[in-house]
């Protein structure tokens, strides 16, 4: 979409099933205890959650454990889902809280506990994978809450309302975390401040 020459087209993000289709899978799990429906829903969310949790500095085995704990809840509490939010918000919210508890329980070092360096010099000619590695480096400098807000917005493509529901915080808190994340990234990745697509 273009508005008077301004490109406001969204970044395309894959959406495998509609919320209604996912709810139908959940209904089959709740009402008929169907393993096939459960397996399908698990497959839809596995990579999605693994990507998100992997960026919370969790070990691979912990990521798998959190995903399975999440889907344990989905299996046992499927009938309790009231539909007040999107199913994805419910599932990702469970995973986020489980991951946070795991990190706290294991006393892992929070991602953002390191001092933010002066900057990370992105080579001007960096492209594609190399660019994304520099971005990852920048993201690692963000406090966990800010990073998760940004990951939920950009990696998983959630709306402000959905992120607030997942993180269990007010809308303004989401906006504030995103604002601070953007500002920090500009400090550590100066190319971002230059804008005009120079960043990626």
């Amino acid at each position: 979409m273009s508005l008077k020459g301004i490109d406001t087209a969204p970044v395309p993000l894959a959406v495998p099933l509609t919320d209604q289709q996912e709810r139908e899978l959940l209904a089959r799990i709740a009402e008929r205890r169907e393993q096939g429906a459960f397996r399908e829903l698990y497959g839809i969310y596995y990579q999605r959650l693994a990507r998100l949790l992997g960026r919370m500095s969790m070990r691979h085995e912990d990521v798998e454990e959190v995903i399975n704990d999440t889907f344990w809840v989905v299996w046992t509490k499927a009938a309790d889902f009231r539909g007040a939010s999107q199913l994805s918000t419910w599932i990702i919210g469970i995973a986020y809280r489980r991951a946070f508890n795991t990190l706290r329980r294991e006393r892992l070092r929070p991602v953002g506990s390191e001092p933010v360096p002066e900057d990370i010099a992105v080579p001007s000619g960096a492209q594609g994978e190399e660019r994304s590695q520099w971005v990852q480096l920048g993201l690692q400098r963000l406090p966990l809450e800010q990073r998760m807000a940004l990951e939920l917005a950009y990696t998983l493509g959630h709306s402000c309302e959905e992120i607030a529901a997942i993180l269990g915080c007010p809308l303004n808190t989401v906006k504030t975390r995103l604002f601070r994340a953007r500002e920090t990234l500009k400090q550590v990745l100066p190319a971002l401040a230059g804008g005009s697509g120079d960043y990626a």
């Binding site: 970044v11 395309p12 693994a50 971005v135 990696t155 960043y199 990626a200």
Partner: peptide, 16 residues
């Protein structure tokens, strides 16, 4: 500045 950042983060999330 934000659009390419979103693009990069979306595209660079490597499969687990």
């Amino acid at each position: 500045a934000q659009r390419p950042l979103a693009q990069t983060m979306s595209a660079s999330a490597a499969p687990f």
